[in-house]
Simulated scan of single mutants.
Amino acid sequence: MFGYVILHYQSIEITKKCVDKLLMFSKTNPIVIVDNCSPNGSGKQLEKMYSKCTNITVIINEENQGFAKGNNLGYQYIKRKYSLSYVVVMNNDIMIENNDFDVIIEQFMEKNGVDVCGPDMVTLKGNHQNPLQLKPYTSKYLQRRVREDKIKVLLLRTRLFWKLYENYKKTHK
């Protein structure tokens, strides 16, 4: 089963269109809308609008934590509450057009043996907004990258790194 996390900020019309598209495909898949502290009160409006929908939850973030933390808040909630095969994390301006979106994703994931994938985002003018990864990343590759990134973060927290960096900056203007 698929679940959806939608990051919302201010534009209630766009978020409503996104949710309406998802509801066209399935009335039962869980949808979590994370309002990232919209100053116009649109999060509360969404909460009221979807209060009778048992599969839609609106989380109102008390502060705008940015893209990643806002999405993580919704992702953590949906993973705790539901037993899902897939979670789609998306901005409110993403419109899924294919009725068989879930089938396409499931087949792709199984065929390529991947755990995480991202879209090839194309503008209305046909421009690709992100480079298309032709060969999917494997779980092993992603685990190695996570380990490497953790090491980098640890290095950034050391005084020695910053001392070396300062010396480098002085000699390499």
Rank of each mutant, 00 (worst) to 15 (best):
M95Q: 15
K27G: 01
I105A: 05
K69R: 15
I6E: 06
L160Y: 13
K169H: 04
N29I: 14
E106H: 11
M95D: 10
N55C: 00
I14K: 09
E166H: 04
E110M: 08
S11L: 05
H172D: 04
Y77T: 00
T15K: 10
K170G: 03
T15P: 02
L46D: 03
M24S: 14
N92R: 09
S139M: 07
N98Y: 10
F108A: 01
K48T: 15
N71V: 06
N71A: 12
I104M: 13
V122T: 05
Q65M: 08
S139W: 13
K169P: 11
R144V: 07
D20Y: 04
K52C: 11
A68G: 07
I78G: 06
H128W: 10
V32T: 03
S85Q: 12
V32G: 03
C37M: 04
P136M: 09
F2M: 07
K140S: 14
N61A: 12
I6F: 08
V116I: 13
S26V: 06
K170S: 09
Y141W: 07
Q76N: 12
E148A: 12
V58L: 07
D35V: 00
N112L: 05
E62M: 01
C37P: 09
D149N: 15
N99S: 15
Y168Q: 04
I151P: 06
T15V: 15
M90E: 10
A68F: 11
N92C: 07
E106W: 00
T158L: 01
I151T: 06
S139R: 03
P119N: 12
Q133F: 04
L160K: 11
H8K: 02
L22K: 00
Q76W: 01
G118P: 02
G41T: 03
G74K: 03
L142V: 00
E62V: 05
I33Y: 00
M121N: 08
